[in-house]
């Protein structure tokens, strides 16, 4: 049961949505963009989000579309993670998306909501960063396109009133992906650590969710990697200082898992890629 009242708006285009949010900001009314609802409803129910207005972006039809066009795949921000995972042109990333929450939640949870949410995990951003996806942001000037990596630092950097319209993901039929997620309890829980390793022609992407208070990632050039005498230790060193402690796991256990998963990932890497 939700014990506070709020108003509900469902704009039909990006201008309506943006103008509405700006109006609420001007009026100092606490408003929130809404898509799948899995995070917003939970937060409002718990009282950690005190919204007086909810702006449901699902009334904007283009934001629920997903299609492949030439070298790109467009995924609207309102597409659910279960649809993204099942979309053939994104097949190589399926294993990562399918580890997030559970199937029924993924039917509601949107890709935009997962990446823009307040929760620290934002696991869906890792394969998008690895594939050098672009993000389409709706704002005062309409739509603008940016490289996701240029506006993602711990979280997606958006100006006041802006929202994510969709993502353009370079189409790849093949990606060599390592993805392993470890939880403290049941598999549908948030991750203690989710490590994603993706091997490109000349570089290695390593991304982490759940390990720190925000998603982490690094690119390592193949040449640099080849010079490392102790690749596992070097990779662990890249992330170790950011290990967090919370009610799911202590710092030491996270560091142990990082060490273990990097070794596991490199085991596959030696055979396949280098």
């Amino acid at each position: 049961m939700i014990s506070i009242d709020f108003d509900y708006y469902k704009p039909e285009n990006i201008n309506e949505a943006y103008d509405l949010m700006r109006r609420f900001k001007t009026e100092k009314t606490n408003a929130v963009y809404y898509a799948g609802g899995t995070e917003v409803v939970s937060f409002i129910r718990k009282g950690t989000l005190k919204a007086k207005a909810v702006i449901d972006l699902k009334g904007i039809p283009e934001m629920s579309k997903m299609y492949a066009e030439g070298e790109w795949v467009f995924v609207g921000a309102n597409v659910s993670l279960s649809k993204v995972a099942d979309f053939k042109p994104l097949e190589p990333m399926k294993a990562i998306f399918n580890k997030i929450a559970d199937r029924t939640i993924r039917n509601s949870l949107t890709i935009g909501g997962n990446i823009c949410g307040k929760l620290a995990y934002r696991e869906a951003v890792l394969p998008l960063l690895a594939s050098e996806a672009h993000v389409l942001i709706a704002g005062a000037e309409g739509l603008s396109e940016k490289k996701l990596s240029e506006c993602f630092d711990k979280m997606l950097k958006l100006s006041e009133g802006e929202f994510v319209y969709g993502f353009k993901i370079p189409r790849r039929d093949k990606m060599s992906i390592y993805s392993r997620r470890i939880e403290s309890d049941i598999p549908i829980d948030y991750p203690v650590i989710h490590l994603v390793g993706i091997w490109e022609e000349n570089r290695l992407f390593v991304g982490l969710s759940g390990f720190a208070g925000f998603p982490l990632y690094k690119w390592i050039d193949k040449e640099q990697f080849a010079q490392w005498e102790q690749p596992k230790e070097n990779l662990v060193k890249e992330f170790a200082s950011l290990a967090k402690k919370d009610d799911r796991s202590g710092k030491e256990y996270r560091l142990h898992l990082l060490d273990y998963l990097i070794e596991d990932m490199l085991g596959g890497l030696e055979h396949d890629q280098l």
Partner: peptide, 27 residues
């Protein structure tokens, strides 16, 4: 749980199973 964890509230919305504790009625 009213938190989307347990699935006891699952219903079909346009044929898709969803956790109705996390869906607003207006949706």
């Amino acid at each position: 749980c009213e938190n989307g964890d347990c699935g006891a509230c699952t219903v079909l919305l346009d044929g898709q199973p969803v956790k109705s504790c996390l869906v607003l009625g207006v949706e």
